[in-house]
Simulated assay, not measured.
Amino acid sequence: MSANAGTALSLEDFTRILRESAGEDEAVDLSGDIADVPFTDLGYDSLALLEVTGRITRDYEVTIPEEDLDGAETPRAFVDLVNSALAGR
């Protein structure tokens, strides 16, 4: 069992995973308030988010349906989606 399994995902954890999985555009400061900034404005495309989703699936032992990801266009929406999936297990 993963150390994060069953634990809620925080925005800080998500940002760390985003950096580790998909890198960081030098023109974007992820340390600021990015919760409601669209991923496209942060320099992340759908492929980068699939990498992040895979990491969260492994680390948090939760499955996020691909069709649900389409509506998660900001870090806050993505974190809320993961936490809803965690709560529904």
Rank of each mutant, 00 (worst) to 15 (best):
M1G: 08
S2I: 10
S2A: 12
S2Q: 11
S2F: 01
A3F: 10
N4E: 15
A5H: 12
A5Y: 06
A5L: 04
G6V: 09
T7C: 14
A8W: 04
A8Q: 10
A8F: 06
A8H: 05
A8K: 11
L9N: 12
S10T: 15
S10F: 08
S10V: 07
S10C: 04
S10W: 03
L11H: 03
E12H: 12
E12P: 07
F14Y: 13
T15A: 11
T15L: 11
R16K: 10
R16M: 13
R16F: 06
I17R: 05
I17C: 13
L18R: 04
L18I: 08
R19E: 13
R19A: 13
E20F: 08
S21P: 08
S21E: 15
A22M: 14
G23E: 14
G23P: 01
E24D: 05
D25N: 15
D25R: 15
D25G: 10
L30V: 08
S31M: 02
D33T: 05
D33Y: 11
I34E: 10
I34G: 00
I34M: 08
I34C: 10
A35W: 03
A35Y: 07
D36C: 03
D36I: 03
D36G: 09
D36S: 14
V37N: 04
V37A: 04
V37I: 09
P38D: 07
P38Q: 02
F39R: 01
F39T: 11
F39P: 03
D41F: 09
D41L: 04
D41I: 00
L42N: 12
G43M: 00
G43N: 04
G43V: 03
Y44H: 00
Y44V: 15
Y44Q: 12
Y44D: 06
D45T: 01
L49Q: 06
L50R: 05
L50S: 08
E51P: 00
E51N: 13
E51K: 12
V52F: 04
G54A: 12
G54P: 03
T57Y: 11
T57C: 03
D59Q: 11
Y60H: 15
T63E: 14
T63P: 02
T63S: 14
I64Q: 06
E66H: 05
E67R: 13
D68C: 09
D68R: 12
D68G: 09
L69I: 01
L69T: 03
D70V: 15
D70M: 14
D70A: 13
G71V: 01
A72R: 04
E73H: 09
E73L: 06
E73I: 10
T74H: 02
P75C: 04
P75E: 04
P75D: 03
R76Y: 05
A77P: 00
A77F: 02
F78D: 00
F78T: 11
F78L: 01
V79G: 05
V79L: 12
V79P: 03
V79S: 01
D80G: 01
D80R: 08
L81A: 03
V82F: 15
N83R: 12
N83L: 08
S84K: 09
A85R: 15
A87M: 01
A87T: 13
G88R: 15
G88S: 11
R89Q: 14
